[in-house]
Design a binder for these strands. Sequence first.
DNA 1: TAGATTGTTAATCGATTAACAATC
DNA 2: TAGATTGTTAATCGATTAACAATC
Lengths: 216, 216
Amino acid sequence: MSKKGISISVIKRLPRYYRFVGELLKQGTVRISSGELAEKMSLTASQIRQDLNCFGGFGQQGYGYNLQELHEQIGKILGVDQSYKAVLIGAGNLGRAIATHMNFKEYGCDLVGIFDSDPAKAGSVVAGLKVMPVSETERFFKAEKPQIAILCIPKTAAQELADKLVSLGITAFWNFSHYDIKITHKDVAVENVHLGDSIMTLAYALTHADDDKAEE
Amino acid sequence: MSKKGISISVIKRLPRYYRFVGELLKQGTVRISSGELAEKMSLTASQIRQDLNCFGGFGQQGYGYNLQELHEQIGKILGVDQSYKAVLIGAGNLGRAIATHMNFKEYGCDLVGIFDSDPAKAGSVVAGLKVMPVSETERFFKAEKPQIAILCIPKTAAQELADKLVSLGITAFWNFSHYDIKITHKDVAVENVHLGDSIMTLAYALTHADDDKAEE
DNA sequence: TAGATTGTTAATCGATTAACAATC
DNA sequence: TAGATTGTTAATCGATTAACAATC
């Protein structure tokens, strides 16, 4: 069964379904109807049924969805049962926090290497991994063949580095640099985490908090 | 002029416009047409004109947009010229990295306090601020009246704390906990940064990378 | 003025919601 | 069987794109 043609709106919602279903499961719930789940997730029952049906019928008429089954299925669709190799580029404040804070295994990933352009940082240990100098990159990539690059580097370095990493076989970027990297090479996934953009939406909300009262 | 009725699709794009326009400005560009900007941002010229026109006509027929003017206007719309007070709750790996890594001023915010439930952490200095114990919360909030709470805490604590913070006057949450906080109180903005959800979309992309080849 | 490019209306497209027959 | 709830088709809604008259 091909998963092509799934809209990114749906894909973006999958992790949230996975989280909620996992949480309910942990609480000991066995089954749920689309209506109940909709209530908990602030969605419509229609949307949930539509979304899940993109990947096949996980429910049962008159019963609802078995949470165990649903959790496994969504997990498989997302690929969290996999173990994609990831490398972190940039061991600054943010990079080190990501490395230590994230439970990569839970998300189908495995952090296998950390690099930093500052030779002084090489050799220090972060999240149980020795930070490597960039000179090691090619040797390491040939040996380990990582798929994911986590970019925690200044924006000035982002584009050039991204291009180089693609040529070394990286096919997915988790980009924390304040720059939208442009990958012409297709079949390369880019997930931008622009923390600045994110906090600005809060500034917007605060700035316009009472616009509704002040309307015409 | 009221800014109500602007769709969140548009609002979410504003920070990106702001970034690109700022970048072009730094490079010394003076004016740009919607067509050129669309090219650079991988959007359509139509969309750019539609988006900007939600807030008034910043362009000039036959000329395009003056970048200096545009940057200022979008900045004002976003509120990055403001100084909203923010507090960080949770001085773990991620919290400390956010505090030191983010240039809050650039985004209309100002980090004024850091709290941690671990008394052992109280007194240590992060990003130039002394970490406070939670017992100080009420005194501090009464004196400083922060608007934004940055949550870098375990999901188990998130909901209860969020409710308490709302009662103390917080009107915007930047939520890094792996939990969707539910604020019944309206006029409270919540921006979730679910890093787990984000990296899972990469796992999805890798898992389904060759679905197109394998189709029917 | 002629050319360029906006602001804005209309057309299209896609995503969400509603409805209901199928079925457990 | 009767009741519940799905899977799925149809209707609605909103967002994006196209078109073009207004105008600098």
